[in-house]
Every structure is written in C-alpha cells, then in structure tokens.
Amino acid sequence: MDQVILQGIPFDADERGLMELLRIRPGTKNASEFSSILAQAKTLARPKAAFGIATARTVDHDAVEIDGIRFTSRVVRINLEKAGVVFPFVATCGTELEDWSQGMTGMLHAFWADSLMLMALGSAVGVLESHLKERLGGGAALSTMNPGSLEDWPLGEQAALFRLLGDATEAVGARLTDKMVIRPLKSVSGISFVSEEGFTNCSLCPRQGCDSRRAPYDAGLYGKRYGL
C-alpha cells in the first residue's frame, strides 16, 4: 500500500479565541499563565498524520480486506465496496505535546494542555483532509469511519487498522496499547472514502448529550442502508 507521511504541519492557535473558548478573562493571572503555556505549546507542537492509498475488496457479507488485512463490519463493507479507493489514516497531536502535557500540575493547567493537544490534533486532521481532497481533485465528497465509533465496528478493529498502516504509525509516533488506546491520547485513526450519499458515524450513533455530534441520529438508517 502506498503511504504518505505528513509532517511539518503548522500549529496555529488564536490566543484570544482560545481564551474565550476556555473562559479565561483577559488581564487576569490566569490569562498570563495561559499565554505562557500557549507559547510553550506553539514551540513544541509537531502535529502529524499518515495515510495509505488502497482499494477494499469485499470478502463476505460482513467483511472487507484491504491489502490482505480483514476488517469485520457490515457498515464498513457496504460503505467501502462502492468507494473504489480508500484512505486508511492516523493523525496525532504528536508525542512532543503529550510528553510536555504530563508535566502540567493542577486541573486547570492540565485541561488547558489537553485542549491545546486537541487543537493540534485538529490541525493534523485539517491538513490530512486537505491532502485527500486535493488528491481526489477537490470535488469528491469524502466520508470517514473510525473504529470504536459504532457498535458495528468496535474499537478492537483498531488493531487491524494499525497493522494495515504498519510503519506509518511509527513515523508519526502513534502507538496502540493492548486496550486499544492510541498514544498520544489526542490521536485519531480511521478510513476515509469517497461517498456521494455521504456518511457520518453520528447518524448511526444513538448516544445523547455528545459534544462531538455532527449529524442527528437516524434510527432507521441501520436497517435502510445496511440491513442491520
């Protein structure tokens, strides 16, 4: 599988916007502490991403193979069999920022560091998406699935995805623990694919009160589109 490693991703953080988001009042002791922490993060942050370019082959009703690695999920099979080319990926805030965050003391500073790591991951994902869209000629509708986001594609499938990505995960400093947690913690893995009808994990996820929801839950979608 061809692989692309994306390094040197800039970490642009708007201090005023962040302070508003984190409820830090300008001119306070907290504001000056945050400025100092943000400056450290900007110096250290090295967000990274890696992706592969492959095709998925349906092996049975509930599974596909990509580069000889089996992924077991009805939703993945149906989404990917129409897609043609697929892009397995991992994106991360980088070990540099996670190592730095371990030195934070107190809940507030730890929360700020966590938020900055999340922003760095956002930078990595943004650059990754731009690369994929550019590669597809700009007009393609790109969708993404992540192991663990749906009951039908559980977190345990992360292991197969890391096997598929192979050395690329090491190149960006991402590793998988035996409990399927990606370190650095602010990392994300998944498979992006072209989908004219569009796919969002959230449409199949009934969880309420989720801050990350990007689409309403469609209770009938499992049955309508996936026969589950």
């Binding site: 507030l108 929360f111 801050d211």
Partner: peptide, 10 residues
Amino acid sequence: FLADLIMAGE
C-alpha cells in the same frame, strides 16, 4: 461547557 465547569472549580 466543560471549560465553564472547570473554571467554576477553580
């Protein structure tokens, strides 16, 4: 949001 809750704790 979470940031408000944490700041209230502070």
